[in-house]
Nucleic acid binder design. Structure first.
Length: 677
DNA sequence: TAGATTCAGAAGTAT
DNA sequence: ACTTCTGAATCTAGT
């Protein structure tokens, strides 16, 4: 068991002094360069304070340093001086690049194809979008008093730039489904971010999921798989995960926004009769699942009414459709709703697409209160990939020390260094573990933290930073918004995120310290078939969620020969192929402040096991803490099902820099460029 | 802190 | 117009 990883390879559990295991390599040769702009940052950093090359966020950059864009940003929409909150921000610190406010992206002239907000929804008496919200807050003009419709319009304007093929409206494919889900989540998170910065109205439930859903549902040419069908839905694979019901509507997996049974009418000679096409089993009825391949599903209706009366279920609508499907023998898609364990909110749910089932039996039961309830027994079709059963296995691994599982080498390769264990598994061959390395969970700068001067930009939010507090300097640095949701999900993509740092007075659980709070999902290092060791997650990961940072030793690139021969190098100066065309509120003026190269050869965390892919599901994001500590944080690009390998794009070396040895890429994607460094 | 309850919510179906 | 296995906020019962 301890052949590959000697007992000395892992730090002793509970050792607080992580620096003990750190092989410190001081950076002496970098000449400090400081912002030349008057005021602002120059006042906070003395030449002795930081050994790093500091450049103003707007550049210029030292040779070889380039801005990093994980996503393409529409360029024509930048720099509009008409910004409602440019003034307070500029007062706070002239050196802080003025954020591009979302209102500056407004495109009032572009009314060509169906702008939202004005047409359908407002005319239908539900004109609650912007006007109602404004009256709610009265005369108090919030600094964030931003029109949600405008946000959505900006978003859709960018969205229209996508090469979206109309053929996919009726028949989707994997790429369009993936893109649509990602677009939905970006919009939803953006709306949530804007709403969150406004003061909460007591008693009003915010539903950014429905708002974003409504906008995309009503936008022509956005949805896919719009024609209902029996059986598989193109572009949706068994095992795919969804985090909101609306997502499944958008991609045509399950049309009812709340209803559990989706059905369509099927022509039989002259008559039409309904057949069920998909069901969602959320566990709030008394469904029970015997072994994961069988589902006992309760019909709809008959639940406790508002008037207190209980009713028998009727053989109509969905119930009738299920009955007809039993006799017809057609396949029914099954979606299993389960609790999202990674989410701190206890009610959060994940929907697993569990593939095709057939109804084999139906009967009527009396429930606890004596009312008739229809029951349907569904059996899963053979030969489909594991989905719900896999989820059930994982629940078992979590509860039973995973001893039952084959291939487990170590239950926790971090020996407690992370807040969650990380298992080490090999079920493909006999290798007993990766080469020796020291596990530590964070990035190691060669200079101790306490020798640095506290930044005057640190905050004093003792209860944690909140996005409606515009006096918080950490909020200001992020363009006036908090970058994360309460779930630790990144709200919008930026080239640089400012987190609270060591000198901030906010607590460790501050919402602006997401990348410092440690792992939130259960990860495991596993042996891949052909790419050595890799990383994957037991928990489903929602789009935008923080996964981990890249831990390792910060490398002095001026003395070391670019350090690129080390296969555990993370080079933040590399550029990435744009992942997707992203709607832009990314701020062009914010750049990576200094070149950062990390080596995780001697030591590091789970990130060192993440493989390269040309179509990745994870991307990296520079995060600056306290103006001087740059870190690399990894976030999910789209929803990631359990046990799917986590990959990111290793990027391309800047032209002019020495190119490391190329390796053959085995990612297997259509867009594979054939190699990586 | 975790479970239970409340309540607005929007699309699809049926009337 | 009506239904609906949502989902967030609030309330309640427990330690």
């Amino acid at each position: 068991m301890e052949q590959g990883l000697g007992s000395d390879s892992v730090p002793v559990s509970g050792s607080d002094d992580k620096s003990r295991v750190l092989n410190v390599k001081p950076l002496r040769c970098l000449v400090p360069i400081f912002p030349s702009n008057p005021g602002g940052m120059s006042s906070i950093s003395s030449p002795q304070a930081s050994p790093f090359v500091c450049v103003p966020p707007a550049g210029p950059f030292p040779p070889g340093v380039s801005p990093v864009f994980p996503f393409v940003i529409p360029t024509e929409q930048q720099q509009n001086p008409q910004t409602p909150f440019a003034a307070p921000l500029n007062q706070a610190g002239p050196s802080i690049p003025s954020p591009v406010p979302i209102t500056s992206f407004r495109t009032p002239t572009v009314q060509t194809n169906g702008t939202i907000g004005s047409s359908k929804r407002s005319s239908k008496g539900s004109a609650r979008g912007s006007s109602q919200r404004k009256t709610k807050s009265g005369n108090m003009t919030s600094p964030h008093d931003v029109d949600i419709d405008a946000v959505a319009n900006d978003f859709l304007t960018s969205f229209n730039l996508v090469r979206f093929e109309p053929a996919k409206l009726s028949d989707g494919d994997k790429e369009s489904v993936r893109y649509l889900i990602m677009a939905y989540n970006l919009l939803r998170r953006r709306i949530a971010q804007v709403e969150d910065s406004e003061e909460a109205t007591p008693g009003v439930t915010r539903r950014p999921d429905l708002k974003a859903g409504s906008i995309l549902m009503n936008k022509k040419g956005v949805r896919t798989n719009m024609t209902k069908r029996v059986g598989a839905v193109p572009g949706v694979e068994v095992g795919d995960v969804f985090f909101f019901r609306v997502e499944m509507c958008l991609v045509g997996l399950h049309a009812p926004i709340m209803g559990g049974i989706d059905y369509m009418s099927f022509k039989i000679s002259l008559d039409e009769e309904p057949v069920a096409v998909s069901i969602v089993s959320s566990g709030s009825y008394e469904d029970n699942d015997e072994d994961g391949e069988v589902l006992i599903y309760s019909g709809q209706g008959g639940v406790l009414r508002r008037d207190g009366n209980l009713m028998d279920q009727k053989l109509e609508k969905g119930n009738l459709a299920l009955e007809k499907s039993l006799h017809r023998g057609n396949e029914v898609r099954v979606i299993r709703g389960v609790r999202d364990e990674a989410s701190p909110t206890r009610t959060a749910k994940v929907y697993l697409y569990d593939g095709l089932y057939k109804i084999v039996e139906s009967w009527v039961e009396k429930d606890k209160s004596g009312c008739n309830v229809f029951k349907y027994k569904l059996v899963r079709g053979a030969g489909q990939p594991e989905a719900y059963t896999l989820w059930k296995s994982i629940q078992q691994w979590k509860s039973s020390d995973s001893t039952s599982r084959v291939g487990v080498i170590l239950p926790d390769l971090t020996s407690g260094a992370e807040r969650l264990p990380v298992s080490l598994v090999n079920d493909v061959d006999h290798e007993k573990g990766p080469a020796h390395f020291t596990y530590f969970p964070t990035l190691k700068y060669p200079e101790p933290v306490d020798s640095r001067q506290p930044s005057s930009f640190s905050c004093s939010c003792r209860d944690g930073c909140h996005s409606n507090d515009l006096n918080c300097p950490c909020i200001q640095k992020n363009g006036g918004y908090l970058s994360y949701t309460s779930l630790g999900v990144l709200l919008s993509y930026k080239t640089l995120i400012y987190e609270c740092g060591p000198s901030c007075l906010c607590p460790p659980n501050c919402r602006n310290r997401v990348s410092q709070a440690g792992l939130r999902v259960r990860l495991e290092v596993f042996k891949t078939k052909d790419k050595g060791w890799g990383l994957r997650s037991w928990d489903p990961i929602r789009s935008g969620a923080f996964i981990c940072e890249y831990a390792g030793d910060v490398i002095d690139t001026s003395t070391k020969e670019s350090g690129n021969q080390d296969s555990y190098i993370f080079d933040a100066t590399r550029t990435c192929e744009p992942v997707e065309l992203m709607p832009g509120n990314a701020d062009d003026s914010q750049k990576i402040p200094f070149p950062l190269v990390i080596s995780a050869k001697e030591g590091g965390n789970v990130a060192r096991f993440m493989n390269h892919s040309c179509t990745p599901n994870v991307y990296w994001q520079p995060v600056l803490r306290d103006e001087s500590y740059l870190h690399i944080a990894f976030f999910a690009i789209n929803h990631i099902p359990p046990m799917k390998e986590l990959t990111y794009d290793y990027g391309l070396v800047q032209s002019g820099k020495p190119e490391p040895r190329r390796k053959n890429c085995l990612c297997g994607s259509l867009k594979c460029r054939g190699f990586f460094y």
